[in-house]
């Protein structure tokens, strides 16, 4: 895989920082944000190729962030993170343009596979 630039967005800071470290160990350039507003600003200043986005966040929720990303940067792939009870939001998210959704706790190999699929699907 070529060097990937991704952005992780989740309000659980310990989750995003640790996952970011693991992805960096695999050669994936990873930044992170802990709320939707911060994520939007980071995307505006330096758009990533992929955003990994938690659906359930306080403040600007994941689906609202997704809508804004797709409106301004339709080329960015978004993979949603959901709890098992919020699969519905994952499906709604895909209708809004998300590439796919994954359940927490994550399987990092599955996440990487999903990111590779997203990059390959780029027109």
């Amino acid at each position: 895989m070529n060097i990937l630039k991704i952005l992780l967005v989740d309000d659980e800071e310990e989750f995003v920082t640790t996952l970011a470290e693991r992805l960096e160990l695999r050669g994936i350039q990873t930044r992170w944000a802990t709320d939707g507003e911060e994520a939007i600003q980071m995307i505006e200043s330096d758009p990533p190729q992929i955003v990994i986005l938690d659906v359930m966040m306080p403040g600007l929720g994941g689906l609202e962030v997704l809508k804004r990303i797709k409106a301004q940067h339709p080329q960015i792939h978004v993979i949603l993170l959901t709890g098992h009870g919020s699969t519905k939001e994952g499906i709604v998210g895909m209708r809004l343009g998300a590439f796919d959704y994954l359940m927490k706790p994550l399987d990092i190999e599955e996440l990487i596979k999903k990111m590779q699929e997203a990059i390959k699907s780029r027109p």
Binding site: T18, P105, I108
Partner: peptide
Amino acid sequence: FTHEIKNILAIIKESSGL
């Protein structure tokens, strides 16, 4: 609360994964 527990499990999983 199950959502919260999932978040805790996710953090433990990433930490042990690291």
